[in-house]
Nucleic acid binder design. Structure first.
Lengths: 336, 336
DNA sequence: ATGAAAGCGCTAACAA
DNA sequence: TTGTTAGCGCTTTCAT
């Protein structure tokens, strides 16, 4: 491996000059910089991140802590984060807690604190008290994306308002018999988000003088499969079923749509379904939903951290990102 | 930040002893090791990865190069890789080429070669000649997951056989009018995989003496939305349409199912649909498919690299992972 | 079983 | 504008 010394020796200049030239620092004659650049390329020199990290205290890497990679929301956020980091020349290190609790604290103690990263982005999820504390006490910039985590700043959509918008869309269509497909639960994925959406659902119903039936609060676990099974039960009785279902996520909405199709229930004629997310499948499925843009959220958070790294001072920022009602074919007037 | 020297000083031992004790190396009295461990924990000592990487030449990180994070296959592979790495105490660095070609070569030259990682896992995708060469000449262990990349070893399912199994399932059900929903195209995602599946489709049809209609080779781009639109056209004419569609991926199969539903075509009564993947939505959708396990492929590849890192010699290994026909409700006998 | 000391390859004062 | 020189915090011989 050719090192900075090789380049310096080849040109008869000092390593400091090579370093400055290559990093675009001022105080290097343009002619010198050109020669250095050329020679470095010719020798195939690539700086060692370990060495520069050790010397400068900057790793040029950012970490993302998440409960699972292979879920729509998280992978989309990741994509947004990555785009920004790439542009800034930063590398992305992913810490997934991946289902089993095994190695959870190893992640915390070995990696997150290991000076491997300059900043950390935490995806909304349930943390133990100890873990939360570890995050709070991080010495470098950090932020939560998605739901709130106590004592840590965060960015995300206004979950309560998003849920309210969805429910009010149904109410405006004349629905009064509205069920809720809830998320959260088996995954450690989150606590705050499902709770806020649920609470907003209840509050909105109450604000409009509509009653809530506890047996119409179905558990969908944020997944297609669980939601489908729940919906099959929820919609089983033609004589007594909701005319609309507010789903706390699109994936659960797909489960409800599927259940309706299996039961021969017409959408939106007999049943309206609305979700939250605007998942990739929502448009082709004709699903009405509240759009959020996870990639934007990730990019926004990454920008924030990158900015703080640059200016070395905390940023002022509005914590909430926009959402938008997208009307498609899965919602319509309440049946008479 | 407390360093190894602080720990050593606190105990009145040398840094070498602390290092040995903490890394579980032999030649340390158990009593000493215990004292070191305790003190290190008390002082909140966490070794710096940059320093140890610089000194030892090991970064304890593995890279994954992929065209996009937020797609089913890739995020699932990532999950499998991550699980293994976590267990081995390795960190995961993700290099996404993410759509736009911007910064592509920066990824190659700045990150991959930057001694930041001990090994690289490349997700099947289209690489420029120069990029392919860069990968081939990597000095550390590397492997491709998914489709083949010329000149680099790889692991994945036997795509040709998987496609053949799918098509023969349809043929065994009596279908002769079989269409193909093809993937590949707009994403740089892949070249080899869609081609192999297409070729196997053609070969299998020919082997069974069945004709192929070029207008029944539809382009689905590996996505739900594109496939749905293609299928809408493919299935438009009740008097002249296929009785079965072989889809090169589940997401495209969902598009075909959706199109069939919109057109009022009964599945599997009038139309059989089969996919490849066993996507999370396949079971609740009742989709017959060829199951593959991306997480397993990722884990397998990661294990391989980890093993080589450990033993310092290339591993012998079977390049192909299993696939399995999963019969569900979307395929049935050809209509008479 | 432990310690001393020489780097690993860079960056960042400080000089010149 | 360029060079000199300390480190950054570990690992790893080589001694002891």
């Amino acid at each position: 491996m050719t090192s900075i010394d090789d380049v310096a020796a080849a040109l008869g200049v000092s390593t400091a000059t090579v370093s400055r030239a290559l990093r675009g620092l001022p105080g290097v004659a343009e002619e010198t910089r050109a020669r250095v650049t050329t020679t470095a390329k010719r020798l195939g020199y690539v700086p060692s991140s370990a060495a520069s990290g050790l010397a400068s205290g900057r790793t040029m890497a950012m970490g993302v802590l998440l409960p699972a990679i292979d879920r729509w929301y998280f992978s989309a956020v990741l994509e947004g984060v990555d785009r920004r980091l790439r542009a800034a020349g930063y590398d992305l290190i992913v810490f997934s807690l991946g289902g089993d609790g095994v190695n959870r604290d190893r992640v915390f103690h070995r990696s997150i604190l290991r000076k491997r990263i300059d900043a950390l982005l935490v995806m909304c999820m349930h943390l133990t008290d100890e873990e939360r504390e570890a995050v709070q006490q991080l010495e470098y910039p950090h932020i939560v994306v998605g739901g709130a985590v106590e004592g840590v700043r965060h960015v995300g959509i206004d979950d309560a308002q998003a849920a309210r918008d969805a429910v009010e869309h149904l109410i405006a269509l004349g629905h009064t018999r509205i069920a809720h497909m809830r998320g959260g639960g088996s995954f450690d994925i989150d606590f705050e988000v499902p709770r806020q959406r649920e609470q907003a659902f209840r509050q909105t119903m109450a604000d409009h003088g509509l009653g809530i039936r506890e047996d119409w609060s179905a558990f969908g676990d944020f997944t297609f499969a669980t939601s489908r099974v729940s919906a099959l039960a929820l919609l089983a009785d033609p004589a007594d079923r909701p005319t609309a279902v507010f789903c706390s996520s699109d994936e659960m909405a797909f489960g409800v749509l599927r259940a309706a199709a299996e039961l021969g229930i017409g959408v939106p004629g007999e049943l309206s379904v609305i979700g939250i997310d605007d998942h990739e499948f929502a448009a082709p499925m004709g699903l009405t939903t509240i759009r959020q843009d996870p990639a934007d959220q990730g990019a926004y958070a990454a920008d924030l951290l990158l900015g703080e790294l640059l200016r070395n001072e905390p940023a002022e920022y509005p914590p909430s990102r926009p959402h938008l009602l997208v009307e498609r074919a899965s919602t319509g007037p309440a049946p008479v």
